[in-house]
Design a protein around this nucleic acid. Structure first.
Lengths: 202, 202
DNA sequence: CGATTTTTTGAATCATATCAACGTACGTGG
DNA sequence: CCACGTACGTTGATATGATTCAAAAAATCG
């Protein structure tokens, strides 16, 4: 029984236009992916696991978090459809991860196994560059969030998030947003009230 | 007039043992590096610049910071001798950087130009993997600092820094440490007094 | 030595955390 | 379809801790 080929218009467009793969390369690459579904609240990855897949989110929404020294969950980022997730550090060095990655909605994922990842690198040279670029951009985005975490007020962080991912607050419970912003849910609630009552001019 | 070959025992050891280069490859690589000195307070990079070098710190100490929306400097990290610095995002995509990188002491640097970087990738295949690993580790470390920034108290952040880079507070003015921790110098001063008076048992 | 930078201290203020309680929405099983 | 339980969001009162501003003390540099 032949498995149905993975399918994602957005990803395939990216492979063509960003990675500059030709039709054959796109076909090869897509054939390397396997589908996986995750129910809301299920985990893709938990602390101690070894991450065996690079994961493309075809549909749904996930959160990456750690459990800190006070046993408190701290959300590092959300990933929506048409983004990648996983722990590359764990994936590459095959060491246990410190992250939890959990579905916040029912998710449809496309998985690239380690074996197929290395096959892609070998058989589709453009893939490695495409992938390296993503790593680079992820790192850059982490540094941006780091500077934001250090210097911005909770209100600024919230407004920034609203600007960059307005969909998020419609889809994700607010206490997760609070955790992402590094504040308590009660503070986020009050902050939002402040903003609604005294809306920004700009 | 032949320029003197760059020399760093630590880097050469790493190239041999971590990157697994042979003598010839190490020689080639080292010959790609050029020396540069920086006086205390001088900048290696400023906002708007394009980063044209991957930089190895042979001697000295640098800080990377941004200037935030309130015109306040926010330190993202320190780099001591035998580490790398620069802005890879800017280096690779040749786009203006948002970072400032400044010498906190007189520094001796080894520079790898873009041209020589790509020559290294081509002529010494092991180099690319070596470099990619560094990017990966940097990203991981940024995520760790991000979770720390979000969840730890100033005291925990300070103690963590003390544990991981005890040299730092001997070498770097404390108001820079405060900026790195995301607090005001006055708060750091009081925090340190608290810790000295009530030292940890562990 | 004088000038500048860095660190400390004090007092008042402000913002967020905390704790407790309540209201609301949601979804599951009866 | 309703009822109940759970998860989520809000509100209030209070406590805690960092910021702010001002100033002095200490260290560093030329």
């Amino acid at each position: 029984m032949k498995p149905t080929r993975a399918f994602s218009p957005v990803l395939e467009k990216e492979l063509r236009e960003i990675a500059r793969m030709n039709d054959e390369e796109v076909e090869t690459y897509m054939s390397f992916l396997t589908k996986k579904s995750l129910r809301k609240k299920e985990h893709l990855l938990m602390e101690g696991d070894i991450c065996n897949y690079v994961t493309y989110i075809n549909k749904g929404c996930m959160r990456r978090y750690i459990i800190d020294d006070h046993s408190k969950e701290v959300i590092l980022n959300f990933s929506l459809e048409d983004y990648w997730t996983g722990d590359l550090e764990s994936f590459i060095f095959q060491k246990p991860t410190e992250f939890y990655i959990q579905a916040l909605e029912d998710c449809e994922l496309l998985l690239l196994s380690r074996e197929n990842f290395y096959r892609s690198c070998k058989e589709i040279p453009k893939f490695k560059n495409f992938h390296d670029d993503k790593v680079q951009r992820n790192h850059y985005s982490a540094l941006k969030r780091l500077s934001m975490a250090k210097s911005a007020t909770p209100e600024e962080k919230y407004l920034d998030l609203m600007k960059k991912q307005p969909q998020l607050c419609q889809r994700v419970p607010l206490h997760y947003i609070a955790s992402y912003l590094g504040i308590e849910p009660e503070s986020l609630s009050r902050l939002r009230k402040r903003i609604i009552i005294h809306p920004q001019i700009s």
